[in-house]
Design a protein around this nucleic acid. Structure first.
Lengths: 104, 104
DNA sequence: TTGACATGAAACTGTATGGTTTCCTATAAA
DNA sequence: TTTATAGGAAACCATACAGTTTCATGTCAA
């Protein structure tokens, strides 16, 4: 999975909104589309880009295809932001590093 | 500052690379351009987008204009990622919240 | 005060992106 | 075994975006 695909995926507000929606559970394409004022193919394209970024996965259930959030893909972004966080909050940074060491 | 402008700014690999470069200190446009295989106006446009996202600031010094990283703007991204981090690491999440409370 | 240098700005180009409409396929249910 | 429903795919369109070339502006130094 290319790092760039994650950053590309989260760059669009509609896609970030879809991610927030999926945080509460799996949803079908029609289900998601109902929340937006755009056509189904448009939403399907957004979902494709989220999938390419590894941020969601899809499983077929009958004639539906349920989309599920895969938040682990955001670790790429978290790591990137974390590098810069040292410049704004060393205390938080140090604590996070301690936690990560503790997790190993 | 629109949240979207930050996400847009960090969506491009060249711009993320420029941010990494500025982490080590202020640099002029010519200085930055020397590290890339693109023209000066192209780099200037990237810098403009980073500035619009609040991620860098610019100060004139003689005929140079020095670009400086403003990492605080990344808090917007950090907060957004942090919302999802609860799904992958509750322990880290709880600790970070504790730190934030401690900072108040 | 002229020349060199650092940058800004405008005009232009090709491609990526977000959206549409239209049509096709597959599954569930009557 | 039709019919309605869920989704996929192709063709198309307008605009945004990343890049270029060219020219103008401002400042330092000789």
């Amino acid at each position: 999975m290319q790092e760039q695909l994650v950053f590309r995926a989260i760059s669009d507000p509609t896609r970030r909104s879809i991610m927030a929606m999926l945080a509460s559970g799996e949803r079908s394409l029609n289900d998601i589309t109902a929340h937006y004022e755009m056509t189904r193919p448009a939403v399907a394209k957004h979902l494709k880009i989220l999938e390419q970024g590894g941020l969601i996965s899809v499983r077929a259930q009958g004639r539906e295809r349920l989309h599920r959030l895969q938040p682990d893909a955001l670790k790429t972004v978290a790591d990137w932001v974390n590098f810069f966080s040292q410049f704004w909050d060393e205390k938080l940074e140090n604590l996070k590093q301690a936690v990560e060491l503790d997790n190993e």
